[in-house]
Design a protein around this nucleic acid. Structure first.
Lengths: 257, 257
DNA sequence: ACTTGACTCTTACGTAACGTTAGCCACTTT
DNA sequence: AAAGTGGCTAACGTTACGTAAGAGTCAAGT
């Protein structure tokens, strides 16, 4: 309930504003933000007006202004802020365009590297699925996994045709092997070896942490679509895979039987 | 037709590659690009392999890599380039997202500043025109003026409602005044005064240089749509305005009668 | 041979916005 | 009084060169 005009030390202000003490020293050095006064011993103390000014400084910083420019903006009362803002916007949009080009270049480069084996097309990527089915999959996956789906698609597009068909075959093989081991306990070393292959298989598509791998495991049983896919190969396979994956994580993502 | 293996001095290489001599010195200093050999007196000389390496360096630079990273990429043969590229892409996309936010913030800020007078909406912006008419205008203007149309629209959106209606009225007034002066020579001081008002009127929408103002003048007579608009106010007005604008430019963008 | 003018070399400070010691002083608590 | 916490100044480090400064080198013209 207090509202007297308190004075803040450097540390207090730095915590309050989320900047470092050194930053405050620096702003003082360059005359951007001077303390309200100094104690006898030279300690800096800031008050209300300084708080406000610091807020403004930080605002303009987020807009990408340099400190010298901020000084001008705040000190020069006749400053045409709107004009300046428009100019900033222009500059930022240029940067944006640049970035787009860079990203495009990187993608081209990845393509070129991968094209040694022949690139994959969107069509080929989803061949074997009906279009609607594929779209369904993407939609649902996007809902659940958000950002990561695009990552997966990126990776697939980067794969060569050969690599892609090999990958698809690999998936089938893993399913078959697992089907044959379904009567064993998930702690079995044979099972765990296959699980590891599954893990590495998945890793081809995106960077998968333990948390995500466990999440994936749960999705295999929670999501009807996925569950059906695996159970069609062999009844109970989805659940078996789920438990095996969790076991694999329990083992520290390593095969230890 | 020569293809012997020539040696390049620093300056020759710098011109060839479009970098500064200092840059080559710097690259030598940090061990990123050493000359093929040095002359007795210490002069640097570069050959084919160095040319190639420099090309690669510049490529990675455009992708936003730091020099130290480039050194790693080029020196470490076991470097996983694709992985690195993907990482770079990720970083760049983050930057991109940041920029978008910044631009949005700037736009909000401009809005807030301008909102003292009440913002204008898209509808209000084109009220008085039929939708198709408005779209036509935009399309054509975009073709001819490209980038600048968006600038104009931005400015209009930033205007307050009051300001906008005032601006529209201003345009009509200018047209009327010009209509009444159409019998005078364009060098007349009265005419030039009105032309200056026109110039300032236009300046509200975008930063108009002499070249662009002249271009605009020519468009008024060259483009049927515009010509019709002015001639409807008063026959011959388009041409009169055109000449008056050029005269204004000839006078150094000032009213000197 | 000598003077230019064009080049080259090394050395080293400047840039932006702080981060990071380092050495020393102040203030408070145990 | 010792210890812990905070403050101050001074000064180097970071990135990729730009920009002199001072001095030697080389080919061409006189």
């Amino acid at each position: 309930m207090e509202n007297g005009n308190h004075s803040y030390s450097v540390k207090e202000l730095s915590k309050l504003a989320g900047v470092s003490v050194r930053t405050l020293h620096h702003y003082d050095e360059i005359g951007l933000l001077s303390p309200a006064y100094r104690s006898e011993k030279g300690y800096r103390f800031y008050e209300r007006p300084e708080l406000f000014r610091l807020q403004q400084i930080m605002f303009y910083k987020t807009l990408g202004y340099e400190l010298a420019e901020i000084k001008n903006i705040l000190d020069d009362n006749g400053f045409d802020l709107v004009k300046s803002l428009r100019f900033q916007r222009k500059q930022l949009m240029k940067k944006q365009a640049n970035l787009e080009e860079l990203i495009a270049t990187i993608e081209k480069t990845i393509h070129e590297i991968k094209s040694q084996e022949g690139m994959i097309t969107d069509k080929e990527m989803y061949e074997g699925f009906s279009k609607e089915e594929a779209n369904q999959m993407r939609m649902e996956a996007t809902e659940r996994w958000g950002d990561e789906v695009s990552q997966v698609e990126q990776r697939i597009k980067e794969m060569g045709k050969k690599e892609w068909s090999e990958t698809k075959q690999e998936a089938e093989e893993i399913n078959l092997w697992l089907s044959n081991l379904i009567h064993k306990p998930v702690t079995d070393i044979e099972v765990q070896k296959v699980i590891m292959m599954h893990f590495e298989h998945i890793s081809k598509f995106y960077d998968v942490s333990e948390v995500r791998y466990r999440g994936l495991a749960d999705m295999y049983v929670a999501d009807e679509r996925f569950k059906a896919h695996y159970d069609k190969v062999k009844p109970g396979l989805a659940e078996f895979l789920n438990k095996g994956m969790h076991q694999f994580c329990d083992n520290g993502m390593k095969v230890i039987g």
